[in-house]
């Protein structure tokens, strides 16, 4: 009698403490979402809004972990190297994850080291100056740069980002020389241009609040169509450049994730980007939902790498073997 009671008790304790079967009950604890940009930039704000909505569907909080650096690759690279593929660590994947390996030695292989989950949205890029700057229009910048080669400094969220690559393409076309200053992300580039440390800021729409308040002036945007928020601001095409630059992004985990867990996370994020409240937040930053499911995202990664390879080669930034 006493013995069975003891056995029952120990069985109960064991049952209580044993780790629950992973995939079925996922998630049983908060999920870490690595955002490889400093807090306060447009990616950070968008990802927080999406994560908040997704966490409701997952039933566990999603903790945003800002790990900035390396043009948005330090966070995902750290994840690929160290995190367990249990679904509790996922990361926002900026386009630099695909582009940087083409330009230099990296610690990751974009096609092998990640489990892609879902493609979510993209950015609106723009060039801003401080409100009291002598540059009233983009033409002023070009004129100044022609007279003073290399003197125009522009802040980007990192070398090899679409902002850097895009700006170099524009400069190449104009035949001007401008100097890139790599920061870690929007919060830092905002401070850099506000404080007068660089002349221009080339960043995704994290400058919005400051432009609206009249502290910064938006010179141009890089989308195909003019922005509804800033109707008077010219696009690249209106300025005569045959370019549209955006930089779509999604989320991924370390390689080797259980497909069931991938599906659970995918579904939650899909519902999140379908949420009108989330879309409203995104719209404020001129971001549009650009959803792709897991399979399409994987295919898309390959296409992007092929396309980027050509651009990087053209600019002479390709890695030397």
């Amino acid at each position: 009698m006493k013995r069975t009671a003891l056995a029952l008790l120990s069985a109960a304790i064991l049952a209580a403490v044993a780790a629950p079967a992973a995939a079925q009950n996922f998630p049983t604890k908060p999920i870490n979402l690595i955002v490889p940009w400093p807090a306060g930039g447009s990616t950070d704000i968008a990802m927080r809004a999406i994560a908040e909505a997704a966490s409701k569907h997952l039933g566990q909080p999603i903790i945003v972990d800002n790990r900035a650096g390396g043009s948005g690759t330090v966070g995902p690279a750290q994840m690929a190297a160290t995190a367990k593929p249990d679904g509790y660590t996922i990361a926002q994947i900026p386009i630099t994850i695909f582009r940087l390996p083409l330009m230099q030695k990296t610690t990751w292989d974009a096609q092998k080291d990640f489990t892609y989950i879902a493609h979510l949205t993209g950015y609106t890029f723009g060039v801003t100056v401080r409100a009291d700057s002598e540059f009233k229009t983009w033409a002023d910048v070009v004129k100044f740069a022609k007279a003073n080669p290399g003197k125009v400094t522009y802040a980007t969220p990192g070398a090899g980002t679409s902002l850097h690559i895009g700006m170099e393409q524009i400069a190449a076309r104009e035949g001007i020389k401008v100097t890139q200053v790599p920061f870690k992300g929007g919060a830092e580039t905002n401070a850099a241009v506000l404080g007068g440390h660089t002349m221009l800021q080339v960043e995704s729409s994290g400058w919005k609040a400051l432009v609206d308040a009249g502290k910064l002036r938006l010179l141009m945007i890089w989308t195909a169509k003019p922005s509804a928020n800033y109707p008077g601001v010219p696009t690249l095409q209106q300025l005569g450049y045959p370019f549209v630059f955006d930089s779509p992004f999604g989320i991924a985990g370390p390689k080797g994730m259980d497909p069931k867990i991938v599906a659970t996370i995918h579904d939650a994020f899909k519902k999140a980007v379908d949420d009108p409240a989330v879309q409203a937040t995104l719209a404020k930053y001129d971001m549009v939902v650009n959803y792709k499911n897991t399979a399409d995202y994987v295919k898309f990664v390959k296409e992007v790498i092929d396309a980027e390879s050509k651009v990087v080669d053209m600019l002479g930034l390709k890695k030397k073997e």
């Binding site: 900035a68 650096g69 390396g70 043009s71 690759t73 330090v74 690279a77 750290q78 940087l100 230099q104 030695k105 990296t106 610690t107 990192g158 070398a159 790599p182 870690k184």
Partner: peptide, 9 residues
């Protein structure tokens, strides 16, 4: 750790 500018170890 990973360098903050080039993301190399």
């Amino acid at each position: 750790g990973l360098d903050s500018i080039t993301a190399q170890p």
